[in-house]
Design a protein around this nucleic acid. Structure first.
Lengths: 193, 193
DNA sequence: TTCATTCTTGACCGAACGTTCTCGAATCCG
DNA sequence: CGGATTCGAGAACGTTCGGTCAAGAATGAA
């Protein structure tokens, strides 16, 4: 057999996530990646294929790290509405506190790549479908448990929260300051009363 | 004196808006611009300075074309609430119908350039402040005219609508389909009842 | 120990990048 | 007309881009 890898592909992919997340696709060069990942150029290509493939794998990794956490948070037994409110509030906080100005990797991909990159668009839609489904399920459960009035539409509410959360990431990335995002979150959450 | 310009700088800038709007900053090359604007490379530099300056001028031009229209729509005499509702509904429609997948030039700039480009960030914040102010004024007027209950907070509602509108542009750009955006807009608008 | 295999390293590739320059032709003012 | 100026077209600038290749070091199976 042959020689074993000296670097950890998982750790390298994680570094790629951080770089692409912070700078986006076009503005990140392979030279940047080689420097930041600490592995040789050829090893990078041998392990991940191309810049585009590496980006898609980084996006997938990001989703795998964040989506389950959100789904778990929203499906925990007990009252469902506080979980939804907490999630939205946390999004507003994270978006406002975003010192590295990274925003959300998925949102960034939606703006920069999705319109002309079918594979990237698929990754974005997957993330959004998962988030929408988790929110819908939680809101439906809240309704069944009497936390949310019967007249409300869980699907429509989930969609409105999904769209709002994308906006929060965009606004927080471009302009510092928490007042705007906290007002926005607070107003949206009055729809859940 | 010298020879007069043979091309129309205004029309050239408009072409630059369309190209940058559709493809973003990094993904648009000077060669693309030269081809699309129909003017010589040297003339482009003589007239607009650099790629970065051209982008900033294109962003400014975009804002000058869109902001006044929105402000006018929201400040028209008569009932104020229908104007707000109409604006949000129009945003949802435009975002969902975005066949060129351009999104909003300001939103795109917020994601791609604002985090590391102070001049671009200033342009984004200007647009958002103008939109937020116009929405706040309209909602305040609606309250004075008895269209909106007295307890509501016009500033917070305006911020929530601003953030939601950014999200709509992002979602519409990445994923076709109107159901999600129309649900989102409809839910948000119930806050204005 | 030998040998096939796969790793790392770093030089290297052609193409594309943003920008500047040269050029002759065209235009205006005096 | 003459001299100044700007035009279009394109060559050329040095740099950086994404991607490849050749050579040697390191490894595990026999």
């Amino acid at each position: 057999m042959a020689r074993t890898k000296e670097f950890d592909p998982d750790a390298a992919l994680q570094s790629a996530v951080e770089l692409f997340w912070r700078r986006g696709y076009e503005a990140t060069s392979m030279a940047d990646l080689v420097g930041h990942l600490g592995i040789a150029r050829a090893s990078l290509y041998a392990t991940f294929g191309s810049k585009h493939e590496l980006y898609l794998k980084a996006l997938q990794r990001y989703s795998e790290q964040h989506s389950p956490r959100i789904a778990e948070e929203l499906s925990r037994p007990g009252p469902a509405l506080p979980a939804v409110r907490g999630l939205v509030a946390r999004f507003a906080d994270e978006a406002a506190d975003d010192e590295l100005r990274r925003g959300c990797f998925v949102t960034n991909t939606a703006v920069e790549l999705a319109p002309h990159d079918p594979a990237a668009a698929r990754g974005v839609e997957e993330s959004w479908l998962a988030l929408e489904a988790a929110l819908t399920a939680a809101l439906t459960r809240a309704q069944e448990q009497g936390e949310l009035p019967a007249g409300r539409d869980p699907v429509a509410l989930a969609r409105m929260l999904l769209v709002l959360m994308q906006g929060m990431r965009v606004v927080g990335k471009a302009v510092p300051g928490r007042a705007r995002l906290q007002d926005a979150a607070a107003q949206a959450l009055t729809l859940l009363e």
